[in-house]
Design a protein around this nucleic acid. Structure first.
Length: 311
DNA sequence: AAGGTACCCAACCGCCCATTG
DNA sequence: CCAATGGGCGGTTGGGTACCT
C-alpha cells in the first residue's frame, strides 16, 4: 500500500543539496543531525520531535514526490517518519516545498507585508498568499521580530493606529522609494505586483512632533480605512497596483491626525513622527541613540538624506 | 577569549473549523 | 445530530548564532 517506488529525483535533490550546502561549513550541525537521525532507532515507539534531519527530509520529500501531499497522519506513517502528520505538513510547507523562497525579504515584500497587515491584521496565511514563495511562518516571524521591535522602541503598540500611521507615513514611503531605486537599477524585478505606477510623494517637511502633540484641540483621528484608501476587496492594495494612495492630502491628513488624545509620556514614544525630519531638524527631541536604533532596521533605513527627499 | 545579551527562526502547541462516517 | 479525524491558523518557545562588553 505504501510503497516508495519511482522517486522524484528533483524533489529529492533539492532538500538534500540544500542540507548539504547549509551544513557544509557546520560540522557541528552535521554531527547533530547524524546523532538525531540515530535517536529514533533507539525507541521506535516514540514520536520524534525537534529539528528535522536530512534523512527525514529526504524521506518526506521522496514520499511526497511519489504520492503527493495530504492525509498527513497517514503520510507520516507510510513514509516511515516518526513524526506527527502536523509536523510533516509544517516541515513541507515551511521548508521543503520546492518553491519556497529564501533569504531576506525584499523592500517590495516588506512594503506589501506592512500594507496587507494594516488591512488584514495577523492573517498571516492570507498575507502570505500574496507573497509567492514566502510562508506565513516567515512573515509572522518578520513581523514579530522586526516590526514589533520597532514598535517597542517607539513605545507604542504595533497594532495601534499610531503605529499604523507611523508605518504609513514614514516607513512605507521609504520602502517605496527603495523599491523604485532597486527597480530602476535593474530591469528585472521579482515583485509579484506592479510597481511602475507607485509614486512616492516627497516627504513633507514636518515639524517636531512634540509641537503637534500639544495641540489638544484637534479632534479627529484618521482611521486605517481613511488614510490608506484601502477597499474591502481582496485584491492587492490599490496603491500597489494603480494610483498613489500617498497623495499629499492623505499623507498630510494621516500625519496630522495621529491620535491627539495622547499626551505627555505617551507622545514621547511616538517618535516615528519626527523621524522624517530627524536628520534635518536640529535639536530634535529624539535622542541620537534612539534614532540610530530605528534607522538600523534592515537596510531600508538607508535614507539618511531625508531632508533631500523632501525637497 | 569569555561571558552575557539580543535576535532570528524552525518547530511546536492549542484552538478552531470542515469533513466524514 | 454527533464524535472522530484531518487540516489550517495564530501564538509561543527554545536552540543556535551574532553581537556586545
Amino acid at each position: 500500500m505504501c510503497t516508495n517506488s519511482n522517486p522524484g529525483v528533483c524533489f529529492l535533490l533539492v532538500p538534500t543539496l540544500f542540507y548539504t550546502l547549509s551544513n557544509l561549513n557546520n560540522p557541528k550541525e552535521t554531527e547533530k543531525s547524524m546523532r538525531a537521525a540515530m535517536a529514533p532507532m533507539e525507541d521506535d515507539s516514540e514520536l520524534r520531535r525537534g529539528p528535522w534531519t536530512l534523512e527525514e527530509d529526504t524521506l518526506l520529500t521522496h514520499y511526497i514526490a511519489s504520492h503527493g501531499e495530504g492525509r498527513w497522519n497517514m503520510l507520516a506513517k507510510c513514509a516511515g517518519l516518526k513524526r506527527t502528520g502536523k509536523s510533516c505538513r509544517l516541515r513541507w510547507l515551511n521548508y521543503l516545498k520546492p518553491d519556497i523562497k529564501r533569504g531576506n525579504l525584499t523592500p517590495q515584500e516588506q512594503l506589501l507585508i506592512l500594507e496587507l497587515h494594516s488591512k488584514w491584521g495577523n492573517r498571516w496565511s492570507k498575507i502570505a498568499q500574496h507573497l509567492p514563495g514566502r510562508t506565513d511562518n516567515e512573515i509572522k516571524n518578520y513581523w514579530r521580530t522586526r516590526v514589533q521591535k520597532q514598535a517597542r522602541l517607539l513605545n507604542i503598540e504595533s497594532n495601534s493606529n499610531r503605529f499604523l500611521d507611523a508605518a504609513r507615513c514614514f516607513w512605507m514611503p521609504r520602502l517605496l522609494q527603495k523599491v523604485e531605486q532597486t527597480s530602476s537599477s535593474s530591469t528585472q524585478t521579482s515583485v509579484p505586483w506592479q510597481l511602475s505606477d507607485c509614486t512616492v510623494p516627497p516627504l513633507p517637511t514636518i515639524p517636531p512632533f512634540a509641537n503637534k502633540a500639544t495641540d489638544t484641540t484637534s479632534s479627529s483621528v484618521i482611521t486605517t480605512q481613511q488614510s490608506m484608501n484601502i477597499s474591502d476587496q481582496t485584491e492587492l492594495p490599490q496603491h500597489l497596483t494603480s494610483t498613489n494612495v500617498y497623495s499629499n492630502q492623505t499623507l498630510e491628513q494621516s500625519y496630522y491626525n495621529i491620535d491627539s488624545s495622547n499626551t505627555g509620556n505617551e507622545m514621547e514614544g511616538f517618535s516615528f513622527a519626527s523621524m522624517s525630519a530627524v536628520d534635518s531638524i536640529e535639536g530634535s527631541w529624539m535622542s541620537n541613540e534612539m534614532t540610530e536604533n530605528l534607522w538600523n532596521m534592515d537596510d531600508i533605513w538607508q535614507f539618511r538624506e531625508l531632508g533631500d527627499m523632501g525637497n
